[in-house]
Write a protein that binds this DNA or RNA. Structure first.
Length: 499
RNA sequence: GGUCCUGUGGCCGAGUGGUUAGGCAGAGCUCUGCAAAAGCUUCCACACCAGUUCGAAUCUGGUCGGGACCUCCA
């Protein structure tokens, strides 16, 4: 059962093969740390965390590179050159690097909340100015860029003409053709420096008020929009690597430009499998800065936002995201998040109960059910290998949850399923829930609280025996008020969980 | 205007032409002192109109709606 990945480049699901056997190079576009991350940002990092986890699980040694964009990009091409970071820093009375540090820390904190594994290399744009300059020089030397007033622009037309012959036209990734682009690109101001509307900046001359600036062969300035990813990906993953991921909104122009820059420099198309996650929407509309409809992660975790009816745990968000396919849009809503919250709890409790079953050796009394469960378990792997269909994996788990609960409640005899099947369930649930999907559940109970609750449970039991329901209900209800739920099990025992 | 995606039950969402996706919510039942939890059962669906087919949510054409990109954007 080979892993299949939908490749945006070919618009097809393809069997994944690594460039170098046993190793995978993966680059994912990271955050611009000029502000706080929002719900939309959570998606690619969770999506590619699962990709990373899965590749590692099947035995690849993965180098996962995710950049931090801490050098100011333009607000908009053609507008007065304006460094986003430095502008905002003035407003907030912070040094640019101070600001960048603050949001980098916040980003790392959020990633941890989501239980995302750190990338193996997390390079910063400001730490790779030299590499970017070197790359730009190479592009100029090869004749695919030109210098105007201390700025350097990529000559898209020339690139397209020359590389189309090699089957690598500009627009190959996003499926556009340059001629159409030239006719339809919106007319922006201050483009007189460019030879052509489609050209993009590799290096920008810095106006005096620009704080972030570096010395370059073309004067003081700062790198263009797209060059950092090309430079850092090449440096850490080589001239060609396996997977490049990012949001669909980066497909054009960002990734298209990356391809052009790297292809000129390295004489080969850089990426073999391009993966793009779809957007998170809110009322059907993309969540994004430009639409003014973002919910920041800190707001989400605290519930502090007019659109939020409550706070949502990071794991609820992770689960919510994994319940859809990464290439579909996913619509935010309180109802949907609340559904995820309950579903995750139910799944987790069933999973914990499954792990508690002690297994020796027996055969199944219900062969048909036993077989069905085995099939559903086997499908976990099939589904994840089918372009990371996490939603289907979860759906299968939920098909099995009632069986687990029934066995636990003795509504089904333990021996309904064979011991081998139960062992397989235990092993595969753990593998997929914890290792591959990366789900966790807060279990901040310790011996002390457990002891206290056991005491209350005993007192309640005694009260019930005496038919003192006032006392027993008081214990139950007041614990519920505190967020602790008592559960009277079928076998007469009482368990508890945080609700 | 150009390129592309999309329209599934109250909400979120899988869906590869023929069989229940799944979750949450709702209803009934079992269990319970009453509940909760859990289990069982159950209601609600494929925007619209044609066409292809023995058979379409799934393919084709059209109509209407929503969205993304073309500009920083996950």
């Amino acid at each position: 059962m080979p892993l299949k990945i939908y490749n945006s480049l070919t618009r097809n699901k393809e069997v994944f093969t690594a460039l170098t056997q046993g190793y995978v190079g993966m680059y994912v576009c990271g955050p611009t740390v000029s502000g706080e991350s929002h719900l939309g940002h959570a998606r690619p990092y969770i999506t590619f965390d699962v990709v990373y986890r899965y590749l590692k699980h099947v035995g690849y040694q993965v180098r996962y590179v995710r950049n931090i964009t801490d050098a100011g990009h333009f607000e908009e091409e053609g507008r007065a050159a304006e460094d986003k970071i430095s502008t905002k820093a003035v407003v907030e009375k912070l040094e640019p690097m101070e600001l960048v540090q603050k949001y980098t820390n916040l980003f790392h904190w959020a990633m941890k909340q989501f239980n995302n594994i750190e990338p193996t290399i997390e390079p910063t744009a400001t730490g790779h100015i030299v590499e970017q300059i070197t790359m730009i020089q190479k592009i100029i030397a090869d004749g695919y860029a030109y210098v105007v007033n201390g700025s350097v622009y990529f000559d898209v037309n020339k690139y397209n003409t020359d590389f189309s012959k090699q089957g690598l036209p500009y627009g190959i990734l996003s499926g556009r053709n340059l001629e159409e682009q030239l006719d339809t690109t919106r007319i922006l101001d201050n483009q007189e420096e460019k030879r052509n509307k489609a050209d993009f900046a590799l290096w920008k001359n810095a106006p005096p008020e620009h704080i972030m600036r570096w010395q370059s062969p073309w004067g003081e300035g700062f790198p263009g929009w797209h060059i950092e990813c090309s430079a850092m990906a090449t440096k850490y993953l080589g001239t060609q690597f396996d997977i490049h991921g990012g949001g669909m909104d980066l497909q054009f122009p960002h990734h298209e430009c990356e391809i052009a820059q790297s292809t000129v420099c390295n004489h080969t198309a850089p990426v073999r499998y391009w993966m793009h996650n779809n957007m998170i929407t809110i009322n059907g509309r993309k969540m994004g800065k430009s639409y003014n409809n973002v919910i920041k992660l800190t707001e989400l975790f605290t519930g502090n936002h007019p659109l939020l009816k409550q706070a949502y745990h990071p794991m609820t968000i992770r689960f919510f995201i994994l319940q859809s396919h990464y290439r579909s849009t996913l619509d935010f809503g309180n109802e949907a998040l609340q559904a995820s919250e309950k579903a995750l709890k139910r799944l987790w409790e069933a999973y914990k109960n499954l792990q508690k079953i002690v297994v020796d050796k027996w055969d199944a009394t219900d062969m048909a059910l036993d077989e069905k469960i085995n099939k559903q378990i086997a499908e976990f792997t099939e589904f994840i290998e089918d372009d990371f269909s996490t939603a289907k994996v979860l759906a299968n788990m939920f098909e099995i949850v009632p069986i687990i609960n029934s066995i636990k409640n003795k509504q089904l005899p333990l021996h309904t399923l064979s011991s081998n099947t139960i062992l397989l369930m235990q092993q595969q649930f753990q593998l997929f829930i914890e290792n591959i999907l990366g789900l966790q559940y807060q279990e901040d109970n310790n011996d002390t609280i457990d002891g206290v609750l056991q005491l209350l449970i005993d007192i309640r039991k005694e009260a019930k025996a005496k038919k003192d329901f006032v006392t027993s209900d008081k214990i139950r209800n007041e614990l519920a008020q505190l967020g602790i739920q008592l559960k009277d099990e079928k076998d007469g025992t009482v368990s508890w969980s945080f609700s």
